[in-house]
Structures are given as C-alpha cells and as structure tokens.
Amino acid sequence: MLIPHPLLGLRDAQEFTYLGDASLMHRPDPAREDAVAAFADYVFLRDNPAGVHRELWFHEAGDRSWLVVTRDTTTHEILGAELASDVKLGGVQ
C-alpha cells in the first residue's frame, strides 16, 4: 500500500505503524460525570466499518508524524491523508 503523506508525498505503508480508528483522538473529558463509562467506550469500543474508515497511522520509519488516513476498507483505496495535529487543531471530525 502507498500512503499519500501530506508533507512527503507517496510513501510505502511499510514505513508506517497502524493504530486504528481515528476516534482515539477524541479522549473523553475526565471531569464529566460519566467519565468512567465514557473512557470504557473510548478504550474498548471501536467501529469497524466495511467501507470508508478514518484511521491513525504513525510514520515511524519516517518523519514521526501521526496521520489521519481515510481508507475504504473494502478496496483499500486511500481517499486522503492529513496530519493528525492539523485535524485536531482544526476541529475537523
């Protein structure tokens, strides 16, 4: 697989480490009343869609940036890749 790194262009997937569902970026507020339940969901429950999936990849053997990669899990087509920090700071879902 080839991942279109937003800074470095097409990079081989072997340079990356896969983490999973990009919802991991949305760590619950520890102050909320139902924090334990929210964290249980956050830690243990992931969507595993057949189709478009936003997921986290770490460019470990590269520039060490975390990317949010949008991938179709049924075809492995990569629909986009962004820096995770941009996504988080931009408030994009």
Binding site: T17, L19, L24, M25, R27, L56, F58, E60, R64, S65, W66, L83, A84, S85, K88, L89
Partner: peptide
Amino acid sequence: GLVYRQMEFFRQCVWPD
C-alpha cells in the same frame, strides 16, 4: 520505541495545543 510512539500520539493527536 513504544513509549515514544505513545507520547507522540498524545502530543500530536490528543493535545497538539
């Protein structure tokens, strides 16, 4: 390596501010 990866995860994905 794993701790470094995890710290980068929190730095970039959770608290980039």
